[in-house]
Amino acid sequence: MLSPEAIIKIDYELTKYPADQRQAAVMSALRIVQTERGWLSKESITEVAQYLGMPEIAAMEVATFYNMYDLSPVGKYKVTICTNISCMLRGSDEIVSHLQGKLGVGFNEVTPDGKFCLKEGECMGCCGGAPLMHVNNTEMHEFLTTDKVDAILEGLK
């Protein structure tokens, strides 16, 4: 069951579209449910599809197409690091090895305590601040150094 809070947020998104185009809100509805539950299970996607009155498969297509949706648990903090060209040129490889060493996990793995998951991201459109990473799809951290990464991780309790 979608929570009352999620429904309020999804209903706000629905005001952006014509009444007969409820499916248009699926991008944000999936984001809202994922933010609330940590990741998108098949059941979560079904609930979103039912609420919007769209075929389940169509919601599943969206959830699997866009790479910020997580279809498996990602721990409490999902850390996504960009390794694309502008970040690579400014040392993202070093940040990646530092993160992997510190967390003891590779890409797409969750730490045993369930706290962190490390993901490799494609360009996030903030290349002026390279190298950079994203926490839980919302917080952008730019101009990373290994010291700065340590401080950020320290702040994630």
Partner: peptide, 10 residues
């Protein structure tokens, strides 16, 4: 005018 978002697709 409304803001809508993508979710990771170039």
């Amino acid at each position: 005018l409304y803001a809508v978002h993508g979710y990771g697709a170039y």
